[in-house]
Every structure is written in C-alpha cells, then in structure tokens.
Design a protein around this nucleic acid. Sequence first.
DNA 1: TTGGCTCACACT
DNA 2: CAGTGTGAG
Length: 468
Amino acid sequence: MPVARPEQQQPRVIAHVDMDCFYVQVEQRRNPALRGQPTAVVQYNDWKGGGLIAVSYEARGFGVKRSMRGDEAKRVCPGINLVQVPVARDKADLNLYRSAGSEVVAILASKGKCERASIDEVYLDLTDAAKEMLLQAPPDSPEEIFMEAAKSNILGLPSDASEKEKNVRAWLCRSDADYQDKLLACGAIIVAQLRVRVLEETQFTCSAGIAHNKMLAKLVSGMHKPAQQTVVPSSSVQDFLASLPVKKMKQLGGKLGSSLQDDLGVETIGDLLSFTKEKLQEQYGVNTGTWLWKIARGISGEEVEDRLLPKSHGCGKTFPGPKALKNSTSVKGWLDQLCDELSERIQSDLNQNKRIAQTLTLHARASKENERDLAKKFPSKSCPLRYGTGKIQEDAMKLFESGLQDFLESQNTGWIITSLSVTASKIFDIPSGTSSILRYIKGHSPAASPAIPDSSSVPEDPSLGDVP
DNA sequence: TTGGCTCACACT
DNA sequence: CAGTGTGAG
C-alpha cells in the first residue's frame, strides 16, 4: 500500500523519462527496415501468435493494443511486423533490452540524481542543474533558450501546434515573478537536451514529464507521445488533478482505486478533496489515508533515489495449461535452465558492477490434480545465495522440494506446476578500495554459512574464476 | 492461459 | 527475518 512521505519544503525539479515503445525501438535499431512501419514485439509465437509486449505507434494507429495476441494484431493490422523476443535456454531472454536500457540510463544520469525505475523509465532530480542554469543563463534572455523550451508542452496552456512556441514564450514572460516556474523551464530545457543526446547516441526516442515531484512528472510523461515532453506548472496542478480519473494515478490502478470508486464514490482525484484527512485515514489507515489526502493536493515528497541498477534479478517462466510440469524431473530440468540464466546474470553483475547478491528465492505456482484445492498457494522459499551455477541449481531444487512438502501437507495427491521463478536479491556493493574481492566473499558471503542443511558437501565450483 | 516476465515495495 | 500481497509496465 502507498505510504505518505514527509513533504519537501523546497521546490524540486523532477523529470520522468519514458522510452517510447522501447522493445520495438530496440528491434528497429537492430533492423532498420522496421523503422516507420507498424511493428510489435511478441514472445512465444506458438500459441495464438504470441503475446504482444510492445507496439509501435504506427501499429497503434490500426488499433493494435498491448494486450493482444499476435493473431489478433494481424487481424486488425495485416501489414504488421511481428518480431519475436530472443529465446535462450528455451525461455524469453530480455538481456538485449536490459542492456539497451543501460545505455539510456548512462546518458540520463549525467545531469543529476538518476533513478532507474524500470527497464525503460527513469526519474531525474534536476533541481541543482536547473538552479545552476538559472544563475548562469536566465531563460528570459537568449533566443536559443526559448527555442529549446518551445519543444515542451505546457500543461494548462493551449497546445495548438502552431501556437506552441508563442505559448511557451508567453508562459515564461508571464512568470517573471515566479521562481518555481523558471526552475521548471530550466528543467525542461535540460531534459530536452538530454533527450537529444539519447537520440543521437542510441537512436532511441523518449518522452518526458517535468514537474515539482515524481507523481506529477510520471503522470504527464506519457501525455504527449511519442518523442515529446510535458511540463506541469504549479498553477495548473489543481485543474489537472480535478478531472483525472483515479485509475490513472500510479498506485490506484488496482484494488485501492476500485475501492475508492465503489466504497467512496470517488471517480476523479478531485473528488478526493471532499474527504477530510481523518475520514480517509479511518477508511484506509493512517499511511494510505494521508497519502491519498496529499496526492489530491498534488503533494508528494517521494525522493528520487540515486540508483542506476536493479535491486534484484529474477528469471521465471510460466507453464500454462497442457504445458504444466507434472513431475520432479521436468521441474528440475526447467529449474536448471532458470538458474543457469540467473547465475550468468548475477555473475556479470559481480564482474561489471562489483555487486554481490545474498539471497536466493524460489517462487512457484501449483495446483493439485483433480482436487478442488485451488486456493492453496505454493509457498515461496529462500536461502543464502551461493555463487556458481551448480550450487544455485542445487539450492533452488532444495527450495522447491521444501516448498512442495509444505504445499502438499503430507497428503500424497498429484500436483502440477504452472510457473517457476528464481530471484537473486539483497544485492550489495562490494566495498571498493581493497582489491581483495575474494577475501570479502569468504568473510561475508553466505558460502561461509550455508543455510541449506547441507548433507551432501559439494565439490568446489570454480565459477568465480573471472573475478580478479 | 488470470497475456509473460520482470521489477519494487509495504505489511506482518 | 522470511514470506505474502499489491501494483506497474
């Protein structure tokens, strides 16, 4: 559930940058013949043409949606190009997109605090950079600055294309006295420049929102897509939120948003204003209640984290319907594959980023054959993570067996597994300075204290070989 | 077949 | 702390 954070006293300049149909762009860069064409990226072509995970804007024009299957997309857009996600170890392999995302992050991190929010989104805190610009090149004077800012859509201003530049100019001039708007304008200029750099250096376009907090920046980053940006002046916030459907707000897309509609009759964020803080707290608890009260007023103190890398690595696969796994042998086979990929990913994280993961977690979904016990869930299990593909595979299988025992509760009915995943988490930087990474591992890694009751002491796996 | 595969986070 | 649930894209 969302939680309210102590608010910011000083105005910040926050940007949310969102890559346009990112997987499609990655594939278009790889195969330029796809540029400008209706294109979608699909995974697993066998069942109904595979599921779409990204759709180009040309294809969207034909009504192609992300929730469609490949077959359906072909129906509404016969000329669509369907590109398959790469497959490795018999599963979708997203590494191509992960590394493309890293290219983008590396550029966007150059102007301020940068938080990788997902494979194709980042938040930036540009407060310092914007203040700096305001001191050195106030955006009232140089014509060039206007031209840059003119690339933005300004929320609350008419965004008639031919009038856009004039509108921006009017906004900046009118706001002579408004320091906060000027900071935002500088932020918009910086973001416009960053987006140009991203395009030049990666060939990818992106869209962005610029506002005084993360919530507002995120809300508008997708408002003008593709390859555009939108600014939220404080003066336009209340009108904007007043008519915003609750479900559009981040965190309100699910059950909480439904509850607001069904239980309180709240249809827009503006509707929230008629409830007292106390009423909202009574309904949803003190944390969520105050959070709701604040967002209705455009207040969000959430900070941009300084983090360019993910906090966990996971590999998973589903086995729907007839593909369900029915015995330990097939589970072991798939688990080995998933662990192989996971091992490779954490190993490269260690080599490239000097980070080490401490926990291995196994998730599964299961049903019991013939029986009506659909409610019962397969429990997640975790243990200290030992590096080395063989060890991870071994530990993951032990976690599975342990979870299966709990799941079956000593009954001996048949079972089927419909999804499996392994995750490496609790990732820490290895203290730099001493080059003795291996000694660090010896002293601090779980390898020194295996949590899995280890009956079969395993021969040493030399897979740390490429660490200096 | 609740689109698949990832991620993050709050709660207990 | 390990494990559960929600939510996002």
